[in-house]
Design a protein around this nucleic acid. Structure first.
Lengths: 161, 161
DNA sequence: GCTTGACTTAAACCTAGGTTCAAGTCGTAT
DNA sequence: ATACGACTTGAACCTAGGTTTAAGTCAAGC
């Protein structure tokens, strides 16, 4: 029924200092105390902790998380504000995922670049002849190879040494 | 053919201080100087800048990016190391994308929680009767609703006010 | 009744990743 | 020739997000 800060830290995969830091920053106003002043977490508090953890992983700054938590403690009048806040964070996070995917695509292009260079024994296969500069057509070559390939892995993965 | 630090900053969507900071941290050893000591970027340097930008967006620490750049300047003997490095970063980034997706799924569950609460006019529809605590079955209810739904949007989106 | 381990606080410390500032050097347009 | 804007440097400053330390409280086991 009740959990100490140490038990909560273990269960959440964090440490007690971090939880105290969050408390100081206003993220845990719902936590009660025992007669000796020790934090006493209830089962229901894990619902808050899950939200905090999710927003944290999503890259939301701590003070914004605190704002959301404070809305939660104000009762039904803030329901729509809470919805709108999560709706906005969903959009932000979806953008972030799209950006990560774009970076992943670029990393894969660079893997192809180095895979082919490793196979050739030299990076010069990608250079404009007579220079040390990468030919401007390189990325287009990758795109073309990618279109023909059945499997990205086959195109960009090199067997482990 | 040549670009000043200001032109490069504009093109990369950053500012000159940041580029100088990167230079100081060893990310731009390939940049040349003119007679007056001003940085002189070449077209080929944008290939490096793109990689730096990609790794930065991917969350790679600056010193690690510097390590990769230094491998690049050591010639063909480091080709395999560069491949392996990118291969590892690809895996790290793919993990990160999976985690973001999981956070997105959780945010959507919470949107559903608040959408239904807003529609009911009260959060108590999710509480165990007679308490102020969220019923443990709430998430399972969402999963069930999600399985039956044709479209997540319909399940979790509330019309804009 | 004393030690041990988990808790409490405030305050100091740390790192990453910049940003700002002060003082100075150029090339160019007036 | 002088003013302007863009460049140069090193050093100081800043924020976020913790982590560490010091000093103390408390319950339980020996």
């Amino acid at each position: 029924m009740n959990y100490s800060i140490g038990e909560v830290a273990a269960r959440m995969g964090t440490n007690t200092s971090t939880l105290r830091y969050y408390d100081k920053k206003g993220l845990l106003p719902f936590v009660e105390r025992d007669a000796a002043g020790r934090r006493k977490f209830k089962d229901n508090d894990f619902n808050f902790l899950e939200v905090i953890d999710c927003l944290k992983r999503s890259g939301v700054p701590i003070k914004d998380i605190g704002h959301f938590i404070s809305l939660c403690l104000q009762g039904d009048t803030t329901l729509r504000q809470r919805y709108d806040y999560l709706d906005q964070e969903e959009a932000v996070l979806a953008d972030k995922v799209r950006d990560m995917q774009a970076q992943l695509d670029f990393l894969r292009f660079k893997k192809w670049y180095y895979k082919t260079a490793v196979e050739a024994g030299t990076e010069t296969i990608h250079f404009t002849p007579g220079t040390n500069f990468v030919a401007p057509t390189t990325h287009a070559q990758y795109q073309a190879a990618l279109k023909k390939a059945d499997d990205v892995r086959q195109l960009i993965d090199l067997p482990a040494d």
